[in-house]
C-alpha cells in the first residue's frame, strides 16, 4: 500500500484530516469522491482535481516510449559467458535485463557452471560480481584451482580477482529480500543466486501459502533489478518424483531427463526469461548437457554439451 505522506499531500493538517477519516493510502484517496474530499481537506474543487492528478502521476509507474527502450537496449551490451558453446546457444551470451535460470538435479554442475561464468565475466569485464550464497558453500578453493589450472595466475592476481566477488550469505527468504533491496542502488550488477529452492524448501508442506507470498515479493524485486540493467542468474534444483505405479514405456530412457521437475515449479516458471535445463550425460559424469527449457528468442529444446574438469566448465 502506498501511504499518504506530506510531500504527496500539501501539508500536515490536511493529512491529519484525511487520516481521521480513515483515508490512509493513495488508493483510498483516489477512490473518494472529489466533493467529499473538498469538505475533508477544505480545498476547492479545482485544487482537489489537481491534487488527484498530481498524485496519479507521482505514484504510478513510468510510461516509457517503445523507441526509447529500443535505443537503450541496443546500447546495452551482451555479457559473454566465456564458454563458447554456451554463448552460441544463448545467441551471443547473457543479455542484460534478463533473468536466467539454471535448473538441474543435484550434482549436475549448476554451481560449477556459475563459478566458471563469474570468473570469465570478471576477467573479461573487470566488473564486480554479486554472488548470493544460500547454502554457505561458496568454495574459494575451487575458484583458486580453476584460476591456477586454467589461467596460471599468480597468487596476487587471484587475490585481485577474488576481491571482485562479493559473496552474500543468506539463510532465509527474509534476509534474501533485505539483501536484494540493498542491491537496488548498484548500477548494472551481475547477480548470481545459488540456490533459490534451499530457502524455499522450509515453506513446502506448510498449509498456508506464505512461501509463495515471499517468493512473489522476491520475484518483484528481481524483475525490478533486471529492468535496472542487471543480469540475474538463479540456480534451481530439479528433483525426480518417484512414481512406482506408472509403467515404464519403451522410450523411457529418452524420457528420463524430462522426468526431472524443478523444485519451485508452477509459480516460478513464469519468472525467468530463459530457463536452461542441465542434465548429466548418461554414463559420462564429466559432461553436462544444457537444454533450453524456456525462452523468448531461442528455440526450445536447442542444446549443447559442455565438459567439466579441473579448469572449470568448458
Amino acid at each position: 500500500m502506498i501511504r499518504l505522506k506530506v510531500p504527496i499531500i500539501p501539508n500536515e493538517s490536511i493529512l491529519n484530516n484525511l487520516l481521521e477519516k480513515n483515508i490512509c493510502t493513495v488508493n483510498d484517496f483516489l477512490q473518494k469522491k472529489t466533493s467529499d474530499l473538498q469538505n475533508i481537506c477544505n480545498l476547492q474543487c479545482k485544487q482537489i482535481t489537481k491534487l488527484k492528478d498530481d498524485i496519479i502521476v507521482e505514484c504510478s509507474s513510468p510510461f516509457i516510449n517503445g523507441y526509447t527502450i529500443y535505443i537503450d537496449r541496443s546500447s546495452s551490451n551482451i555479457i559473454q559467458t566465456g564458454i563458447l558453446k554456451l554463448d552460441n546457444l544463448l545467441g551471443g551470451g547473457l543479455f542484460t535485463r534478463q533473468i536466467y535460470e539454471f535448473c538441474g538435479p543435484s550434482a549436475c554442475g549448476k554451481t560449477q557452471l556459475t563459478y566458471s561464468i563469474l570468473l570469465n565475466i570478471i576477467i573479461s569485464t573487470k566488473e564486480d560480481i554479486i554472488y548470493i550464497d544460500t547454502k554457505n558453500k561458496f568454495s574459494v578453493t575451487r575458484i583458486k584451482q580453476i584460476l591456477k589450472k586454467k589461467y596460471e595466475f599468480t597468487n596476487q592476481e587471484i587475490n585481485s580477482i577474488l576481491r571482485k566477488v562479493h559473496v552474500y550469505s543468506v539463510f532465509d527468504l527474509y534476509s534474501l529480500i533485505t539483501c536484494l533491496y540493498s542491491l537496488k542502488e548498484k548500477s548494472k550488477p551481475v547477480i548470481f543466486i545459488d540456490s533459490l529452492p534451499a530457502l524455499y524448501l522450509s515453506f513446502v508442506c506448510v498449509n498456508n501459502n506464505d512461501g509463495l507470498c515471499y517468493m512473489n515479493h522476491i520475484c518483484s524485486v528481481l524483475k525490478y533489478l533486471s529492468k535496472q540493467n542487471a543480469t540475474i542468474i538463479v540456480t534451481n534444483l530439479a528433483i525426480k518424483h518417484s512414481n512406482f505405479t506408472k509403467k515404464r514405456n519403451a522410450n523411457s530412457i529418452n524420457q528420463e531427463q524430462f522426468d526431472f521437475k524443478p523444485t519451485i515449479g508452477k509459480y516460478w516458471i513464469h519468472i525467468p526469461n530463459t530457463r536452461l535445463m542441465l542434465t548429466t550425460e548418461i554414463n559420462r559424469e564429466q559432461k553436462m548437457c544444457i537444454t533450453i527449457g524456456k525462452s523468448v528468442h531461442i528455440p526450445i529444446n536447442e542444446k549443447c554439451i559442455l565438459n567439466i574438469d579441473d579448469c572449470g566448465v568448458l
Partner: peptide, 16 residues
C-alpha cells in the same frame, strides 16, 4: 514510438 510500455512491480502502484 507508438508503443508505450509500463513496467509495474506491485498492485497498489498498478491501480494508480
Amino acid at each position: 514510438a507508438k508503443l508505450t510500455l509500463i513496467n509495474c512491480y506491485d498492485s497498489p502502484t498498478l491501480y494508480v
